[in-house]
Design a protein around this nucleic acid. Structure first.
Lengths: 249, 249
DNA sequence: GACGTCAGTATGTCAGGACAATTGCTTGAC
DNA sequence: GTCAAGCAATTGTCCTGACATACTGACGTC
């Protein structure tokens, strides 16, 4: 019998929620880990017991735990069990903001924060932010209005250390919020494209389904060339263009 | 029913191998992708069919495909299917010609002149070219290919005095042709946007109707600030993005 | 004290099944 | 030509079940 008792993470599942059960589990455990309530090294109860205690199937519990493994928060070995990873990896912006531009143009900018989540970096987001898989990042999603009409959906990923709080974002544009925290965006690489709106995007933007969207993907770096932000924005093509003047050298 | 047939990736599974089945599947598909045998955009057979064909369970096939999604090689969406993550043409937003950029990227540029007409200027065209109403101008319309696939429809208006001949345009890009006549483009004002394709554009670009198009409207000036060209281009959004790097001053 | 065996623990892998949700195409009405 | 409804296609989510494999600790033997 093992000496150290296995920890039973406090997880409350809401089956009426549209959020998948596995995702609720993963989020709850992640929160316990990042808050310090589950310190590194803590062994969790085995997945069969956890599944039974929470009233979910083992594959569901397994998927939740596996997501946390993929993020570097948990370590699992067969025959041994699941434990909190010994170390959560920690790491340290004219190019103008849309909010400033709209304000300058007298277009009554307004922003609605749709989502603000602390998640773990993976795939292209980890690559763009130049952080290891599993690092905590903030993913935020905002709806930008101009003249009281939706204009753009802004999705930004930032490292958790520099991400402004949700409260700050309710009041300011992202780059202003970053400046308040001493982060100066200096360079941005961006890629402009287009595609059709998904049904959800169309609804948010009050567009008809499959309207054309102008897309912009951006990686922003600070004074020391550290990647601060990776963002993907979509704009209503009907109401938005990018203008530029090019000069041959 | 979908038009394009779903690809059945060639996967051989060895059940006597200690390598898990899901891992063998993922490795085989990864090899097909990285070798180029499964080019970007290819749609794969659905996971139920693939599982059945390979003699594995759906969760097993699903895990293999999910691993490939996690590594950025596949894209999956419910109701749509699984496809090889696609590759877009990224064009730096510099004052260069598309023909030159494509050639430099080894993308086999080719141009088909669809129309070449001498007409009289009116409306926005006259305004953009800063010439009197009724002045003779050349309006040309070209279809630009990359890798033998249509990429863009280019419509350009020029004063008849500087417009290259149709023959010259069959051989060269517009800016090269202008250079041959001693005209140097130095500045361009451009506006990037998006919209849905018309039926005719969709046909020319071999896109489905109402596909998203990336649009670019440009006014180009020469060394003495004379307006030389007014152009409106549309690009297949699925295959094209504009890239730029912005620096705060 | 060292070593081997064995049982218990726990995760890894795989199967089959079912319903939900999203997407895109077709069709008919206007 | 546009729009809405219906439906097919396909993935997403969740369930039950079972066997395989790696790891750990207890125990007996030398």
């Amino acid at each position: 019998m093992r000496e150290t008792p296995a920890h039973q993470p406090r997880v409350l599942l809401d089956r009426s929620s549209p959020v998948p059960l596995y995702h609720q589990m993963a989020a709850a455990i992640r929160e316990l880990i990042t808050s310090g309530e589950l310190p590194p090294g803590t062994r969790l109860e085995n997945e069969v017991a956890m599944a039974s205690r929470l009233g979910v199937s083992r594959p569901t519990a397994r998927q939740a735990l596996q997501d946390l493994v993929n993020t570097g928060l948990l370590v699992r070995r067969r025959g041994v069990g699941t434990q909190v990873a010994s170390e959560v990896i920690r790491r340290p912006m004219e190019l103008t903001s849309l909010q400033d531009d709209l304000a300058a143009a007298g277009r009554a900018p307004r922003t609605e924060v749709l989502a603000y989540d602390v998640v773990t970096a993976h795939g292209p987001v980890a690559e763009a932010l130049r952080c290891p898989l599993g690092a905590s990042i903030v993913t935020m999603r905002r709806l930008r209005y101009a003249d009281d009409q939706p204009l753009a959906i802004l999705t930004n990923h930032l490292r958790v250390e520099v991400a402004p709080s949700r409260e700050l974002l309710e009041e300011h544009g992202l780059y202003d919020a970053l400046r308040e925290q001493g982060v100066q965006i200096r360079v941005a690489h961006q890629s402009i494209g287009a595609r059709l709106a998904t049904a959800a995007e169309a609804r948010l933007l009050q567009e008809r389904p499959r309207a054309a969207l102008l897309t912009m993907e951006r990686i922003a770096l600070d004074d020391s060339d550290a990647v601060i932000e990776y963002g993907t924005h979509v704009y209503r093509a009907q109401r938005y263009t990018f203008d530029t003047t090019l000069i041959r050298r």
